[in-house]
Design a protein around this nucleic acid. Structure first.
Lengths: 220, 220
DNA sequence: GGTTTTTGTAACAATTTGAAGCATTCTGCG
DNA sequence: CGCAGAATGCTTCAAATTGTTACAAAAACC
């Protein structure tokens, strides 16, 4: 499902329980939640109600139980829609689109422009416009993959990330064994942002683990 | 059904075909439409699409055909929700409430009356008159498709949109595989609005995903 | 009916990306 | 220290993706 939706243009993060969900909601800008009812720990209803207490984020609930009461309970707890398993992926897609189309109409969201920027070393990375500038305002072109990788590293600043994690963030897939593509992207990125690519100060290798972004990062 | 919903506090008007529906929409302030698919004359899909052309009024579709394709078609034509007959009245009630909760801000508004203008880069785009002007008030002509595409991108500012989504917004269809028409339109649009079409600042490519409008957008 | 504009298809160019493979660095060990 | 083995760095190259041009079909306009 994650892969299917990513193929249709959505960025996805998958989590396995309520704790992870809350973390994801904190760490990422989440636009919509797809929530199963049967979960380890708190069930989907509890999570739905809990999320609704603080947020209006759209929620689609999945249920294997085709019972009316479940459906109604979900909707009354504030879910925006629900689907009964098994369902056609394209129907989920259609419902997601319907929700976003609906969301569009209500809010005049064009105004909000939190063009977030982060600063590190001699660089300023504009997360909105995907532009990397040095102190003299010279733009360094980053390819999609390079930007995506850099954003992931910066976001998880001072924390080593495994190749697996990076592939997952950047491409949304779990990596295959002996996947070296991240190494190559790191290499290309270093060539662009490190003063001395041989002595990286920003992106350091953590042998046996992966890579780690080492500079101080300040949001501007 | 009418009686049931009226008992729960809603005012209801029932009509028996498309002609009566249009009359009712003219004569009353309708907040929500419940639409069967099997109808004499034009079917529910046709009516749904027709209503959507001029109004954002929420639509719930009823279908006896439990087929996925029907559900999907309904949602893609702009319906907000659907129910398969036979259904539990309380579920219909729950879905109606869900829709109103979502809408919250208000009820059906006519789509095409906002002569709003938006500003980005050196441009001012008048969404009402469909005119694009630069800072010197020089009008740059946009074709229908170009305007539509630009509006979609601006509306979803700072968010990558897949080709699928763009085709869906611009042409209202889901795209066929290997559809490159969006790429061409993007190319034409860039030629018109980017200073350097080779180094786009406004419309950026997100490889593997689609395109993203990157400039800050302000409503004027 | 004829003309102009718009739009999509086909074809080719440019860019981005990852696999293969070798070079280099690191680690543990004798 | 030197060495083998493993992990990482990086070059080369082909595949995939995207950009763009030319042209024809379709639509709009007279």
């Amino acid at each position: 499902m994650k892969k299917f939706l990513m193929q249709h243009g959505y960025r996805m993060t998958t989590v396995s329980d309520g704790t992870e969900m809350r973390k994801a909601l904190r760490d990422w800008k989440i636009d919509l939640l797809i929530l199963d009812i049967m979960l380890p720990g708190e069930d989907g209803f509890a999570l739905c109600r809990d999320v609704r207490r603080t947020s209006k984020i759209p929620i689609i609930m999945l249920t294997a139980v085709g019972e009316d009461t479940d459906r109604i309970l979900g909707l009354e707890l504030g879910a925006d829609d629900y689907l009964t398993k098994p369902f056609n992926p394209r129907e989920l897609l259609a419902r997601i689109r319907a929700i976003f189309r609906r969301a569009e109409t209500g809010t005049s969201e064009i105004v909000e422009n939190s063009s977030e920027k982060v600063r590190f070393g001699n660089w300023v990375l504009n997360l909105g416009s995907r532009e990397l500038r040095d102190d003299d305002d010279v733009v360094v072109h980053l390819s999609t993959g390079e930007f995506s990788l850099l954003r992931a590293l910066v976001k998880h600043n001072k924390r080593p990330l495994s190749r697996d994690q990076l592939v997952d963030i950047v491409r949304g897939q779990s990596s295959i064994p002996f996947d070296r593509s991240i190494d190559i992207q790191i290499s290309r990125l270093r060539r662009k942002i490190e003063k001395d690519a041989k002595n990286p100060k920003l992106i350091k290798t953590v042998r046996g683990i992966g890579y780690q972004f080492c500079a101080d990062v300040a949001t501007v």
